[in-house]
Design a protein around this nucleic acid. Structure first.
Lengths: 231, 231
DNA sequence: GAAACCAAATCGTCATACTTTTAAGGTGTG
DNA sequence: CACACCTTAAAAGTATGACGATTTGGTTTC
């Protein structure tokens, strides 16, 4: 699900550079300069810049150039922006933001899921909870991560709220990052596993209250771990 | 904060058309067709399409054309997408989604605000709470709306979480829509007013728990009203 | 010193030519 | 008949030159 072609490659250079603060707010770029720097045509530069403009990271003005806008204006929910920030110098701040967001959204999603999940959703959740238990015991971190991501994505999707559902990938990115950068215990905690199972059971049996509470414990724990790691 | 120039105008046509389902998922547009239909050049069409591609509403493929992607892939947090959906046939669904999101986020934001708000934030909140009381009594709906929007925006900003802060405009759009389409009592409810004041007081005195609870009551009430109005 | 004016810089748009990818259909072969 | 291979044409992708529009900043003029 990437932007294709040369504009996409340009974005992969410009986006991270801006997101990391390497090209600071208020900087002014000229179109022609970008053409030369990356060896592409006006067409390509303009299309890439348009996309950045669409996520409100830059504004283009005649006789001035392409200005990097203040971070407060960026579309911080745009998956590309999130990925760029997670990959760069802004990672700690982005992780904290996402942590709070998760604490707000995931318990609510779990509660909704207990009411709205389809039978397929519930089956998938049960199955994933089992998988989590197994792969945790085998200390198979990669597989564990995959199932963990899927678990949270399913809960968010099963909530029946398209906006919650859309955060599935984002949460996935957070979990991936956490594993990649070893911000996680090498051995998944048995307590966390049990909580996932609790969430699954509560959703399957329609206990909204209980699902919400268990999920809250999970994301609160994740947030505490994060705060500990980041100081 | 709009996209400028001809691509912007093209977007204002295409975006709502797609968001409302008038141009259904799976439809295929040809670039040349759009050039003719809107009387603009290739450049303009391509840049507009790139932006739509950036929000994952369309994908452009050689030898095929510009395909409208399924709604589940759209960047549903993009302010433009939200505005387009609120303006069109998808308004009820969008309002419901946003309602759930508010129920998840705003109480959490209020709790955080009680801890992180600056002195300026607290002053502004107090002042807005007073304004709300006054303008409600005078039945000055427009001014009331403006202050209501500001109130929620300040709480979200004062949470110190950039992602929450970013939802201020979106919540504003919801409140505006609610007033415009008369989905609201003509006279603001005294109870709701008192709750706003409670939120302000709790945040000012650092009572997170209390702020969260009062805000939850506000957004839950809004959600119930919405469900009633939409059936 | 202020207002009007002018010139240069930069983006915005258009038109056109060429390239690249790829769906689709036709052709031949087992 | 089925399958693999080749051909073709349709559409987007890229490059480039020309011109238009706008804004800034300096310069002239009163």
């Amino acid at each position: 699900m990437e932007i294709q072609g040369l504009p996409g490659r340009l974005l992969d250079e410009l986006g991270p550079a801006i997101a990391s603060g390497e090209v600071p707010e208020g900087s002014v770029l000229r179109g022609e300069e970008l053409e030369d720097r990356f060896g592409v045509s006006r067409t390509v530069v303009r299309e890439a810049v348009r996309i950045l403009e669409g996520m409100r990271m830059v504004a283009s003005r005649r006789r001035v150039g392409i200005t990097v806008l203040p971070k407060s204006l960026w579309d911080v929910f745009d998956p590309m922006v999130i990925r760029w920030r997670l990959a760069g110098a802004d990672r700690p701040a982005q992780l904290r933001s996402l942590g709070s967001l998760r604490m707000a959204v995931e318990p609510a999603a779990a509660a909704l899921a207990a009411v709205h999940a389809t039978d397929d959703d519930r089956r998938e959740l049960s199955s994933l909870a089992v998988e989590l238990t197994v792969t945790a015991r085998d200390a198979d971190l990669t597989t564990f991560l995959r199932h963990d991501i899927a678990f949270h994505a399913v809960v968010l999707r099963a909530s029946g709220n398209e906006m919650f559902a859309h955060l599935g990938d984002t949460v996935g990115a957070v979990l991936t990052g956490r594993t990649e950068y070893h911000l996680m215990p090498h051995q998944p905690e048995p307590y966390a596993i049990r909580l996932h199972r609790e969430v699954a059971d509560a959703i399957c049996s329609g206990h909204a209250e209980e699902a919400e509470q268990a999920m809250r414990t999970i994301v609160t724990g994740a947030m505490e771990e994060l705060n500990q790691q980041l100081g």
